[in-house]
Design a protein around this nucleic acid. Structure first.
Lengths: 193, 193
DNA sequence: TTTGGCATGTAATCCGTTACATGATTAG
DNA sequence: CTAATCATGTAACGGATTACATGCCAAA
């Protein structure tokens, strides 16, 4: 298996929660880890096939209410491979933040567009904090003794802290943008008056 | 120009700082925006060529101390294209955080590996906060009246706030991991005794 | 003299998304 | 009836990195 390709490990990890179909894996991912990981079908299905070919997962066809499903399970070799990967230090990935890039060039942007972007981002992050809080509450209620719970919570906490930091930053930034806009207005008045 | 490809705009934006060679653009990017944007040469040079073909940038060969450089400048059409892009709302990009993924599956990881990853991340973020602070100080000292300064500061503040949030999260997480490790030890003692 | 930085580019490859294609079942 | 959801996959494309290839200049 390649070094840089993390999708196989993400899928193996998902299979530690129990045997699942590709479709289910995606749903589970979206419901629990969307804020830090995602996979597309175009990636997911071929990789599952590969995992099976390499003996890291096994599959059996299942008939569920007339629908055909292909349910995958992690194998012993799969668990070992996952464990080895979990031990390796995470690779640093160069971030790309389009909002910051647009702000960085803010002086050359149409008036008010920076403010709009930041407002939209703030709203999105506020929604997210609510979402994280709900998720955490539901998790504690529905799986209070699940052995994975502490780990799931850590990732949720990460999301919450970052969303809160983002909101604070938005407020600070909106104030700075307002000041810039005011100074620009002043310059214009001074220049013409 | 394509919709999704942001590299051209990043390069046009860099050219608003003045005419530069591809090599210089990369250096500038690394010195000022590394925490939210990066480009590789394999991407940068072909895109510069494309920008010129589309009339958004112009170039002239320059002989600097015997070395041949190809210096690019943004054109009027380039400024317009940049302005239009700056106005469009930033696209949401699904994040991928390998550290969180590894933590999420932490129960299946070799003992202590989660802790190590978090410690390494914490150290990295602590370095970063120092770096941001220095950069901001230097910026204020060296370019106190630069019209782009307020915008550059906003992105720096983002970096600092996020690094600080990351450190707080690390400390919280390290405590939770320690508790998990302790409980695991207890279980083992109870099971064998 | 040899290492590091300046400087430009191409080719191979990979990873990932999007669009396409298909079809059954279930809930409204 | 029909829209949504379950379910699996492939093909095309695009964006980005990495490795490769080259060569000059300055400083140690």
């Amino acid at each position: 298996m390649r070094q840089r390709d993390k999708t196989p490990y993400a899928l193996l990890g998902m299979l530690t929660l129990g045997p699942q179909s590709g479709y289910e894996i995606k749903k589970t991912l979206e419901a629990s880890a969307a804020h830090f990981w995602s996979e597309s079908y175009g990636q997911l299905y071929p990789v599952l096939r590969r995992l099976e070919a390499e003996g890291l997962a096994s599959s059996r066809r299942q008939d569920k209410g007339g629908r055909l499903r292909k349910v995958f399970a992690i194998t012993g070799a799969g668990r070992e491979a996952l464990g080895r990967w979990l031990q390796r230090p995470p690779e640093f990935q160069p971030p790309r933040n389009e909002l910051l890039l647009k702000l960085f060039f803010g002086r050359h942007a149409p008036a008010g567009s920076g403010r709009e972007h930041v407002l939209a981002y703030r709203a999105q992050q506020a929604d997210l904090t609510r979402h994280y809080r709900e998720l955490e509450t539901r998790l504690l209620r529905e799986h209070p003794r699940h052995p994975d719970l502490p780990y799931w919570r850590m990732t949720l906490r990460f999301g919450r802290r970052f969303a809160e930091a983002a909101i604070a930053w938005c407020d600070e930034t909106l104030a700075l943008l307002a000041r810039e806009a005011a100074e620009k207005d002043n310059d214009n008045l001074g220049g013409s008056g």
